[in-house]
Nucleic acid binder design. Structure first.
Lengths: 342, 342
DNA sequence: TTGAAAGCGGTACCAA
DNA sequence: TTGGTACCGCTTTCAA
């Protein structure tokens, strides 16, 4: 049924190997035959089988994004389309396919080695929520190209791409300080949540830099939901000193906070300024609209893919040093009403 | 380097074919040898190459989602994570991989036949924005399994899955009528936009059913952005009879509408009721919160995948009739303040 | 510049 | 119940 290289060879009265060379535009084939055979290919509607090519070349021209799809409401959720778009924008033009693989952190180690050994991909991009130290070690031992999305806190270096949350947080905080806010509180997140750690650290960096004395940052880690935001503001207003600005872990926390502040008749941004991370999904649509950090999630995907492609291409050249690249994308500050007093 | 079936055969002192049979759990192999060979496989860390298996079996155990990733802000954008999750939830357990392919409508025809012929997938799920009549015909002629996501308006039947937007719109309208609204206006969308056509048709269905006479639906197709929503409301308020309820094409149109109504001091839901499609990304977070239709996008992906898997599995059985299944998912009404007078 | 043949790592049929 | 062997469709030496 399907037209194969053999059919073309027969039709052109040449050997299979000649056809193969035409396929790969070998310099050892005369232009005349190239033209002739290509014509025949077109007429017979011939397309080489990627399966056969893959087996012969021992690579499948496919890269895989490995994530845990069961984690609903995660960071990935909102930015998935952008991240995928970013990855595709670099692997596509390189003639690589992109496959999505779903696996939980627990099963990931076994899954990864099986995946690699089964030759389902030439390289993988993996979310940091599911890469363990063991699997990172496995991948390294197998010499398999991979890139991590998100921070990595293991002992060994790992090629990874992430938004620079810490510097972003610093930038966001500087903005608050420029606006005259002095008494900051950080709400949302949870202890041991890497995103929380780096963002709160960034806020502290800014306070130290600007030498804002006597007003240490107060931190309220209580989850990343609207409810949590609402609740944290309640707590803050009831006990102790009231801050004049809130840095919120995400849009939902910020939304909950705004809601509670409104109920209490506290004006934003006059009495309390509010800022948050991420521009999606709500920041432009709250009242007042939220000042935030825009994360370049398309760039995140594209950056990861670039790192991976370069690994794959350098692979032959035993250029191991290049494998350890890391990229940090700087978020962009978007100023809106929620933090501008005038 | 890599362990192959040959290595296992050698180590076990049996023929390749025997190992292959163990791999496929053939009933013609004694339990004793199965156990023995499996043990050896484990010890040698053997995983079969999917490339080789694929070539031998002439199928790659991969299904592909084909979309146009350059269409930012599209319906897919917000629901991508859910749709992918839905697809994966059915292909994953069947041991199929999921790949994402990006292509524009213009190049799609060529792309598709190349894709199919190159054996990169055993079946595809394709977005209706890029399937043309020609490509549908091609796929059918090739006898290649595929499922469309979204409505299909071509002459021939095509296996597809979609949210039942028309019935959903009817349900949404019935809710408005139950609340006592009588004078409806439909805002957003654009002529020839299938989603617009089916949704507005659904509203009209409801009006006819309930015999709401003398107040035909007024329709304002002016795009699907916040700005458009804002603008349409301005226009409506300035000219002619003022409706008592607005059905909005999406969350952004509704947001723009709410904004304008608020500026004009028109109360929602007392003076004008507002409802919209989709629960994402804003509906729960506007003031007042929006009554809407929740679309089961996870189910959309899962449904498409199920249809496709059944096609792939029935393929051998020449059971062509089953290929023409269609699925319509019923959206769920979520009632919120924007349309409840009491 | 072209051809022949041995892989790549499995599957599947037929014989033993 | 096992083994031998001819594929699957393309690549890649090595000869001609």
């Amino acid at each position: 049924m399907k037209v194969t290289i053999k059919d073309i060879a027969k039709a052109a009265n040449v050997a299979k190997s000649t056809v193969s060379k035409v396929l790969n535009d070998s310099p050892h084939i005369s232009i005349a035959t190239k033209v002739r055979i290509r014509e025949i290919m077109k007429q017979m509607n011939y397309i080489p089988s990627s399966l056969a090519t893959g087996l012969a070349r021992q690579k499948c021209h496919n890269i895989s994004l490995i994530i845990d799809l069961t984690r609903r409401n995660d960071f990935l959720n909102f930015f998935f389309y952008n991240i995928i778009g970013g990855i595709e924008s670099v692997v596509g033009p390189n003639n690589y396919e992109l496959t999505i693989s779903n696996v939980g952190r627990e099963e990931s180690r076994d899954y990864l080695t099986r995946y690699v050994l089964s030759q389902k991909a030439d390289g993988i991009i993996i979310d940091n929520s599911i890469l363990t130290k063991d699997s990172a070690e496995d991948l390294r031992n197998l010499g398999f190209p991979y890139v991590l999305i998100g921070e990595w806190s293991g002992p060994k270096m790992v090629p990874c791409v992430d938004i620079n949350n810490r510097l972003g947080a610093t930038r966001l905080t500087q903005h608050l300080l420029e606006q005259g806010y002095r008494n900051l509180a950080f709400i949302g997140g949870g202890e041991n949540e890497p995103l929380f750690e780096s963002r709160s650290a960034g806020v502290i960096d800014a306070l130290l830099q600007e030498d804002v004395e006597g007003n240490p940052l107060r931190i309220y880690p209580d989850g990343n939901t609207e409810k949590a935001g609402y609740h944290m503001v309640s707590t803050i207003l009831e006990h102790g000193e009231i801050p004049d600005a809130l840095v919120c872990m995400n849009n939902f926390v910020a939304f909950g906070a705004l809601k509670r502040l409104k109920e209490k008749g506290i004006s934003v941004p006059q009495e309390i300024g509010v800022v948050t991370f991420d521009n999606e999904p709500l920041a432009p649509y709250t009242t007042p609209a939220l000042t935030c950090l825009h994360m370049d999630t398309f760039g995140l995907g594209a950056g990861a893919a670039e790192l991976l492609m370069s690994q794959i291409q350098e692979e032959s050249q035993a250029n191991q040093d290049k494998f350890l690249q890391q990229k940090w994308l700087m978020p962009e500050l978007i100023v809106r009403e929620s933090s501008t007093k005038r």
